[in-house]
Design a binder for these strands. Sequence first.
RNA 1: AGCCCGUUGGUGAAGUGGCUCAACACACUGCGUUCUCAGCGCAGCAUUCACGGGUUCGAACCCCGUACGGGUUACCA
Length: 472
Amino acid sequence: MSTRTRFAPSPTGFMHIGNLRTAIFEYLVAKHNGGEFILRIEDTDQNRKVEGAIDFIYNTLKLCHMDIDEGPNNAGKYGPYIQSERLDIYKKYAEWLVEEGHAYYCFCTKETLEEMRKLCDARKVPFMYDGRCSNLSKEEIEEKIKNGEKYVIRQKMPKYGYSIVHDVVYGDVKVENKILEDQILLKSDGYPTYNFANVVDDHLMGITHVIRGNEYLAQTPKYNLLYEAFGWEAPTYIHVPMVLGSDGNKLSKRNGDASFMDLYNEGYLPSAIVNYLVLLGWSPKENQELFTMDELIQAFDEKRISKSPATYDIKKLQWFNQKYIKNLKDDEYLEFIRPFLTHDVSDKSEEWINKLLLIYKDHLSYGKEIDELVNIFFNDEINISKENEEFLNSDEIIPTVINAYREEISNLDDWTIENLAEVINKVKEKTGAKGKLLYMPIRIKISGVEHGPELPDELYLIGKEKVTQRLS
RNA sequence: AGCCCGUUGGUGAAGUGGCUCAACACACUGCGUUCUCAGCGCAGCAUUCACGGGUUCGAACCCCGUACGGGUUACCA
């Protein structure tokens, strides 16, 4: 039997980084074993549905080079792949469970439940549904249904014994059955709960490895009981540790840019994001950090997933991103970076723009950074700060240096970076100035600030006309 | 409150009883790269593995307890 994993997000139109990481793990387990990676949309909570969310998920995974083998947009033989289109299936299986005595109809209203809950709170005992409806007689049930009373279907949990879950990462987890609530399988609106739909779908879709966040670990015994009730074989469970924000809490929009799209729009390359995320809670056997997707598929081993949560650190992501940007071919880089340049370049040549962008290729942590770095080439007014003004007056050689530059530059016919480097050399020989006194005066004069790229590059890009004008 | 899980430097982590007075990477700090920023190169950065006991000739690695952190206990997923 081939390995099949699934990514099962809610269609919220938002790809959280923790979710993406889970998807990566799911994808890698499938591909490492030559299996299939399935997308299933979990829209059993109709309140959370968002238009266009499915295409958004496809696009995101595509950007990350993860191909979906089966899903809503490319159905295989296990469809439909959207849970809201499988309602009749869940109903059928839930009712089968009732017939077999593993589940029962429950007519308790939300109000009744609320009262029970309050009572428990008052007595300081944890609330758990008491299973009163499991004692209803067949006649009572028929009567209530005939009267149009709303009902849910609840799973009947054993009252004694314990359940053991085998997890690849966490080992055997043992839980007493008596603390398990008779959970709802089918809601009164006819939709299944997540827990129920998952079990039914995973089995029906032939999922062999269930990979998910470890917040589900404590609930897995309920799953196993369900598999048992159906007489199905439980899948291999791989619970993965959570990703935390720098404040030690679960990652959310509040602590940092936790959304894939946010990062993408800031100029983080998807392959860098993937590379960073996969190393959050997983480490390879060999001491390697940079991975292509193919290398990851090759190297991935779910047994090396860590048990403890990892903290999301954008600094390290930036380091990966910088490496990936640097490894881009020049034309790929230009295509990537160009949209992040928002300055008006209508009067610039293509060659000039490319030269400008290329200068920063090896220095960028993320795309958006370019816009600010490049500011000095788009200022019409030069504003020299008081401190820099003081510097210009601090040594009597400075006016001589500036004069020498002006002279050499006016004599320069061919405006190239090589020639400009030569100009600097000539000024050095002529004036005897070196180091800071050689470079800073002209740097400040032509740009107003003491920071910038290599001086010949900077001169070249500012252009002869402006340089001449600003030196006088 | 019950139950489940976790705890190696600021961060990701290696490590599964002796080769570890704990690898590697990020961050940070310092030095160099005949100007700056960035980049690059080099160097420094846990006598110690949450804490306390135990097992052992020997423990970050095994056992017990404590503390702390997180998760879960929904007609959310």
